Amino acid sequence: MNIEPISVIELNQADSKQRGQAYGEAARQRIEMILAVYRDIFHRITGETWQQTLIRGKPFILKAKAFAPDLVEEIQGIAEGANRAFDDIFLLNARSEILFNPQVLAQECTTIAALPEVTKNGDMLLAQNWDWYKEVINCQVILKIGQREGKPALVTFTEAGQLAKIGMNAAGIGLVVNNLTSDQPRTGVPWIFLTRRILESSHLAQALGYVLNTARAHSINFLIGYADGEAVNLETSPVEEHVLWPENGVCVHTNHYLKPGNNFRDLKPLRDPYPSTYLRCRRAQKGMAELKGEIDVQGIQNILKDHMDNPFSVCVHQNPAAEPMQQIVTCLSIVMNLSRRQIHYTIGNPCRGKAESIELDW
């Protein structure tokens, strides 16, 4: 597969709709690409027409409007800029909630955090391999959103048309995420809206509040890092949340709950025939322990290239024997130095792709 350079889009508009319009215009081609990808994926999973799928997304719009009307307005702007219907762009921002199917348990992501007391240079590091359908590799964008009243400047790596996903901001807040699967889905706020609010936070406590005090629709682990030297895993389901702090200065998470739920079941171990989540978690934990006090960007990058038990490894490659809905690969590998405001990333598999860096002048 030919991997194209990722699009970088700078957005400095104060008005939500105008910011969305500029985003939609700049990302129009990639938005068209990713809508075509999801049209195919949704149909293969559900058998529905696109219009039927869009109808299932409508109840989430009301929840999103109540939570963040400015972000819904931004989505309207994205739709206008991309010359698409509002419902199309909203679907991109609620794809996990609308797509939810307990029979489809794709492995998605390995995340790592290292506190300053265990890193080689005293830096706060946050990292992720984002594993998803291979067709989305060339549908990613980098958004650089300027400072607005009460909200710090931020950088986020996300799918074209989405509000935010992985990233960091000028206040020192960083975010990586893991998909989880529980048996208690409900109509609530899509998790993409929460990632944007986390990256708009000026304080760690504020970011926690957005996650813990919101009626969530989907099960996600939010691993939040803070440049001042802290990190926290927020394991969430629609009905419960777990606040997990680092152990020995390190957080590692994959796609199963580390703490058992009281009000839900973790479907990952029950229905996944190849639960690589446990192996990936073990390999990342072991790799971090072996680095001890010498943890740095390169060391974490090497962990993210691990191929133990390929294709069920930390660095995920296509498995020809897998079912179509399990054809997952590493689409992005990223290490963020929150202390130095640096981002190191590779589009696609980190063992093959070219490593790039961003120096932020915040």
Rank of each mutant, 00 (worst) to 15 (best):
E4I: 09
P5L: 08
P5Q: 04
P5F: 10
P5G: 08
I6V: 14
I6L: 14
I6Q: 10
I6C: 00
S7W: 05
S7Q: 14
S7Y: 02
S7F: 02
V8Q: 12
V8Y: 13
V8T: 13
I9N: 04
I9Q: 07
I9T: 07
E10L: 13
E10D: 08
E10T: 13
E10Y: 10
E10I: 08
L11S: 08
L11Q: 10
L11H: 10
L11C: 09
L11Y: 05
L11P: 04
N12P: 04
N12V: 13
N12R: 12
N12E: 15
N12S: 14
Q13V: 01
Q13C: 07
A14H: 12
A14R: 11
A14P: 00
D15F: 09
D15I: 06
D15M: 02
S16H: 12
S16V: 04
S16D: 13
S16K: 11
S16Q: 14
K17S: 06
K17I: 05
K17D: 07
Q18T: 10
R19V: 00
R19A: 12
R19M: 14
G20W: 06
G20I: 04
Q21V: 07
Q21C: 05
A22C: 06
A22F: 02
A22Q: 08
A22G: 14
A22W: 01
Y23F: 15
Y23I: 13
Y23N: 08
Y23K: 05
Y23M: 10
G24L: 07
G24W: 07
G24Y: 07
G24H: 01
G24A: 05
E25Q: 10
E25W: 04
A26P: 02
A26C: 05
A26I: 03
A26F: 06
A27C: 05
A27V: 05
A27R: 11
A27S: 10
A27P: 11
A27I: 04
R28L: 03
R28W: 03
R28K: 13
Q29F: 11
Q29W: 00
R30K: 15
R30V: 09
R30I: 07
R30N: 11
I31A: 10
I31C: 12
I31F: 09
I31M: 15
I31R: 11
E32Q: 15
E32F: 11
E32V: 10
M33Y: 05
M33L: 12
M33T: 06
M33N: 12
I34E: 05
L35Y: 02
L35P: 00
A36V: 01
A36E: 14
A36I: 01
V37H: 10
V37A: 07
Y38H: 07
Y38N: 14
R39C: 06
R39I: 00
R39Q: 11
R39K: 10
R39Y: 06
R39G: 15
R39M: 06
R39V: 00
D40N: 09
D40I: 03
D40E: 11
D40P: 01
D40H: 11
I41C: 03
I41P: 03
I41E: 08
I41W: 08
I41K: 13
I41M: 04
F42V: 08
F42I: 03
F42Y: 15
F42S: 05
F42K: 03
